[in-house]
Structures are given as structure tokens and as C-alpha cells.
Design a protein around this nucleic acid. Structure first.
Length: 333
DNA sequence: CGATACGA
DNA sequence: TCGTATCGG
């Protein structure tokens, strides 16, 4: 998932406190939804659902995370993917195949009573369909949170919004926005520090990656970072066999990107991928406004149609409302 | 994931 | 009151 450059960014991630994160956050909606849909499940892998079998995991995630963001002075704007570029088609096909296989493996694991495997496969089978998108956008509207659909990749649009100063940083677990030129990326923007991963407890803290610092530290230009991505693999090309981020870094630092491509993949022209990262389709046609939540509307949606507990929903909405009011006052001064 | 219940 | 377990939909 995403560009495979994680291994060279180990020293480029700085811990960041919540206090430093107050401001406007451009959230990679696809990434957030995928995270909610894959993780918010029962131990056997079944997602949260209403009585009619509609998946609700993502709605739970959006409601409570948004409440936390606002409470901490973070104003999110959710950036959805638009039409994927042709270059991405192979990745899209592979992911579809992978999800279908995971779905089968999930059923098998359930038959064998292997809960851990069932959960793992169910997570891998998570899919963002039309219902997920429609219900997510409806909830954001009712919560008073702005969202927009990118012309193409959401991460490209989010990066552009930070470059323009419309937002302070991109929120995503993936690194693609850096190749799209996002000046600041924030990962692990979750409230709970301790998480269970494969039975063990691990501490996960918010971390910030500043593009200029990253490029300085590694002695690269943004174009060279993109070259590393292309060698290691992106959503738009499979990468070169046997070359991961670390080897790619050495190759690019020695100025051997083109010769390696010419040798290993003579029929491959990386120029259109480089160009896509440097000049992706983006739009300036958006306005960002945060308004007080439509409390009765949210209750009607989540409790009336998706079987949420009214007590839990109202409690979360109280936190959203308090901050929405305070924001209005802040803006006045 | 994030909220809540529960035991030390 | 804090850390771990387990609901939630």
C-alpha cells in the first residue's frame, strides 16, 4: 500500500505533541476509512453492522476521531479520492484480487475456528464501496466537517492544500503525499497510545515528517525522492525487482537512477510517473467551513438508521458542540 | 479505532 | 485511579 520508502525515513520522523498539531489538517479520507474498516471488527473479523447488515465501522471511527480532533484544536478537512489515473489500474486490479482471496481465506479460517487468522483475513478483505463513501460524507456534513473530492488522488490534493497554506499538514499513514510535495505529513494521529499488534502491546505516538528536513538529511531533491519511490515501487509502478528503499537511496545518491532503469527495465519510461507526482491534477475549487454539528440530524442518522446507542452518540456530540462554539468565539477575537 | 467496564 | 479487557453496531 502506497509508496515503499518507509525504510529510509526512520530518522526523519519526529515525535509530535498534540499541542503542536492544533490547526487545519488535510485528512487522506481513503486512508482513514480503510483503517477504520479493516480494524474496527469483532474478534472473528465481522465488522460492526446495523440490523440490516449495513457496515458501520467507518461511522464509529469518523464520529469519535472527529470528536477527539476538535477537542484537541484540530480542524479536519476530509479529502476523498476522485478518478484514479490510468497508471493505477494494475494496482487497483491486484488489490481487488487480493481482497477476494482474503475473503475466501476468512471463511476458511472461520470454518477451522482460527480466530486470529479470521481477523487478519477479514481485515485484508476490507473494501470501500459506494455505501461507505455516501454514509461517510453524509455523517461529515451532519457533523459540520468540510470534505471535498479530489480531481484524482486524494493524497495529491491534500499535499497541494498544505503547500497552498489551506491546511497545516496532511494526515495519512502512507508516505505518498511527500512525493506529491506535502511540506508536512503527520502519521499515527490516534488518541490511544497503546495498541495490541499480534497479541503484543506496542506504543504508537503521533509523528511528523517535514519534507524539507527529510530532503536535507538524505541529501536529495524532491525529484530524487520520487526516483527512489519509482525504484522501490509506487501505486503507479511495481518497482524494480530486488531493489527496496535502501538500495534505491544509494542508487539515486550516486546518480544512477536512469542507468539502473535502462538496465533492469529498458521498456519502462519513468517520466510520466515522475510528472504525475510533480504535477498531479488538483483543484483550488473548495471552501473550508466548520460549523456546529446538526445534533438531531446525527442522532437520526446514527441511532435511527444505523442502530448506534443514543447515549454514546450524544456524549460524543457534546464534545464536538462545545469546541465548535469555542471556535466561533476564537475566530471573533 | 476509540469508548467503556472492570479489577487491582 | 490506572491499566487491561472487551464492547460497540
Amino acid at each position: 500500500m502506497g509508496v515503499a520508502i518507509r525504510d529510509i525515513l526512520v530518522d526523519c520522523r519526529e515525535p509530535v505533541s498534540w499541542d503542536d498539531l492544533s490547526g487545519i489538517a488535510a485528512v487522506d479520507a481513503h486512508n482513514a476509512l480503510y483503517q477504520f474498516l479493516s480494524i474496527i471488527r469483532q474478534p472473528d473479523g465481522t465488522p460492526l453492522m446495523n440490523g440490516k447488515g449495513r457496515v458501520t465501522s467507518h461511522l464509529s471511527g469518523i464520529l469519535f476521531r472527529t470528536a477527539n480532533f476538535l477537542e484537541k484544536g484540530i480542524r479536519p478537512v476530509f479529502v476523498f479520492d476522485g478518478k484514479p489515473p490510468e497508471l493505477k489500474q494494475e494496482t487497483i486490479n491486484e488489490r481487488r484480487k487480493h481482497r477476494a482471496m482474503a475473503d475466501e481465506a476468512w471463511k476458511m479460517a472461520l470454518q477451522e475456528g482460527d480466530l486470529e487468522e479470521a481477523y487478519r483475513q477479514a481485515s485484508a478483505s476490507a473494501r470501500i464501496d459506494a455505501h461507505i463513501l455516501e454514509s461517510s460524507r453524509e455523517l461529515l456534513d451532519l457533523l459540520g466537517i468540510p470534505w471535498l473530492e479530489a480531481p484524482s488522488e486524494g493524497e495529491a490534493q491534500a499535499a497541494w492544500m498544505v503547500r497552498k497554506g489551506s491546511a497545516a499538514y496532511v494526515v495519512s499513514q502512507d508516505y505518498d503525499s511527500l512525493l506529491f510535495g506535502a511540506p508536512v505529513l503527520v502519521r499515527n494521529l490516534t488518541v490511544s497510545g497503546r495498541r495490541r499488534v499480534r497479541g503484543r502491546m506496542v506504543t504508537v505516538n503521533p509523528e511528523r515528517i517535514v519534507l524539507s528536513s527529510l530532503l536535507n538529511r538524505l541529501g536529495l531533491t524532491r525529484e530524487q525522492l520520487i526516483e527512489i519511490g519509482i525504484l522501490a515501487g509506487t501505486d503507479f509502478n511495481p518497482g524494480v525487482r530486488g531493489i527496496g528503499a535502501k538500495k534505491a537511496l544509494k542508487i539515486v545518491q550516486k546518480g544512477e537512477f536512469e542507468s539502473v532503469i535502462a538496465e533492469k527495465q529498458p521498456d519502462f519510461n519513468p517520466a510520466q510517473i515522475t510528472d504525475f507526482f510533480l504535477n498531479p491534477p488538483v483543484t483550488d475549487d473548495y471552501t473550508l467551513e466548520w460549523s456546529a454539528p446538526d445534533i438531531e440530524g446525527v442522532v437520526e442518522m446514527l441511532c435511527g438508521r444505523y442502530d448506534f446507542s443514543e447515549e454514546r452518540v450524544r456524549s460524543a456530540l457534546t464534545r464536538v458542540s462545545v469546541k465548535a462554539t469555542q471556535k466561533t468565539l476564537d475566530a471573533w477575537f
